[in-house]
Nucleic acid binder design. Structure first.
Length: 415
RNA sequence: GCGGGUGUAGCUCAGGGGUUAGAGCGCCUCACUGUGGCUGAGGAGGCCGUGGGUUCGAGACCCAUCAUCCGCCCCA
């Protein structure tokens, strides 16, 4: 095979594109019910947008960006995540007006230079929403409700939201000291690279898969105990709001998230139908980001959801969308009937009845084989006798029963 | 970026140094010249991922490379 899709990218083939379209329309319809408006941003941005927003030490910035210099010498990066470009556009076009709450949604390709595995690609696609301009816990609840309701709408099984609060800067500074202190003995026995990783972001210890770390974390202080009063009360309000909405969630203090801009609320939805890449959805509040990108002090919250991962779960459960059956296959019993076959196809399609016919001069037997292979509901047969007496023979392909319908009543009878 | 598994027909997979590389499914032809599905007979389809090497001989063994899958890291 001379050419193939670049590493970590994939084609969405016809049998799968039906499910993709279904996911897309379901999401579009749902966010519309909440008054969210679609935002489309470019496939690439100035590199600095991502380095500024995601955090200089985040993995996305340090090793996963698809960055390159364009012919004008600009440093460009393929969209590495959805929130920063959305905030950029929000600020650039003054979408926030005089501080109103602004609700945006998007579906977009996302590029990260990572080692591909199942559920992890160098180009993948995300749905996302961003609710900008409200600090209310009700905004958090609204965004989480959208994620939850979407997943239930598409019949994603076993959906439960994992929720945490990581507080503000002061909380994380204090907690950082506490957790590093708790783990100091453990840290001295690990390699330099691992230790650096942990020191960069001690919260990583919380979701480590190393048995020693897991054991150590059982006795670790909880970030919940370090929350400031305001963070604590907003978290309580959010939990109450979710309960009121009937959304199941569990508080999981080990949820951290990889982007530096999150404050207070963070959440994830995982699926055990995936392998190691189990997050379907991740999001949180980012009350500092808009300001960091040069805008006014604007609290905001949003999430991203991986479409490929949704697809993989549905596929593993055999829940992909079935192709709509073609209704009528119109068969020419002999060559003289071909023009009438074209005409009938045309009339059926005008009446929104799907119709197909042979294009290659195949004989009647092969045309019927084709109709059968397509799983058409009926065959419409036209031959010499039909032409002279102005009728078509309608054959039910499931039962084999046939009946005659005059040409001028064909479309209405088949409606 | 690190460790491991796998690349053979359109698809799923056998073959593990010795003629012309196999099966099932699918596809095509015929039995069947105005009737699909079922059945039977026949057929097409492969640079055995790619490039080097070892060998009298490589689909098989070695090296490299590309892709993919599993785990780590990380994430959606």
């Amino acid at each position: 095979m001379k050419y193939q899709a670049p590493r970590g990218t994939h084609d969405i083939l016809p049998r799968d594109s039906l499910t993709w379209a279904h996911l897309e329309s379901s999401f579009r319809n749902l966010v519309g019910l909440y008054g969210y408006n679609e935002l489309r941003t470019p496939t690439f941005e100035d590199t600095e947008l991502f380095t500024r927003s995601s955090g200089e030490t985040s993995d996305i910035v340090t090793k996963q960006m698809y960055d390159f210099a364009d012919k004008g010498g600009r440093s460009i990066t393929l969209k590495a995540e959805g929130t920063a470009p959305a905030v950029r556009a929000y600020l650039e076009h003054g979408l926030g007006g005089q501080g109103q709450v602004t609700r945006l949604w998007y579906t977009t390709p996302v590029f990260r230079y990572e080692r591909p595995q199942k559920g992890r690609y160098r180009e993948h696609h995300q749905f996302g929403v961003e609710c900008l301009g409200s600090a209310s816990p009700l905004a958090d609840a609204e965004v989480i409700e959208i994620a939850y309701r979407f997943l239930t709408t598409i019949q994603m099984p076993d959906v439960s939201v994992s929720l945490n609060s990581i507080g503000r800067a002061a909380t994380r500074a204090a907690y950082r000291e506490a957790i590093l202190g708790h783990a100091s003995a453990y840290l001295t026995e690990m390699g330099a690279e691992d230790r650096l990783r942990i020191e960069k972001n001690p919260l990583r210890l919380l979701d480590s898969k190393d048995p020693k770390a897991i054991d150590l974390m059982k006795t670790a202080p909880s970030i919940q105990d370090f929350l400031e009063d305001e963070s604590r009360s907003r978290f309580a309000s959010l939990c109450q709001a979710l309960s009121d909405l009937g959304i199941p969630f569990e508080i999981r203090p080990e949820i951290v998230r990889g982007l530096d801009y999150y404050t207070d609320t963070v959440f994830e939805v995982l699926s055990h139908h995936l392998g190691a890449q189990s997050a379907l959805c991740g999001g949180g509040r980012y009350d500092r980001l808009v300001q960091d990108l040069g805008g006014p002090d604007t609290p905001a919250i949003g999430f991203g959801m991986g479409i490929e991962r949704l697809f993989l779960v549905l596929e593993s459960l055999d829940k992909l969308q079935e192709a709509p059956r073609i209704v009528a296959f119109v068969v020419a019993a002999d060559e003289i009937a071909r023009p009438m076959v074209q005409r009938i196809c045309h009339d059926l399609r005008n009446a929104k009845i799907s119709a197909q016919c042979d294009l290659e001069g195949k004989d009647m037997r092969r045309q019927l084989k084709q109709a059968n292979a397509l799983n058409a509901e009926i065959a419409v047969l036209v031959g010499e006798e039909e032409l002279s007496k102005r009728f078509a023979t309608i054959r039910d392909l499931a039962t084999g029963e046939q009946r005659a319908l005059p040409f001028d009543r064909l479309v209405e009878e088949l409606q």
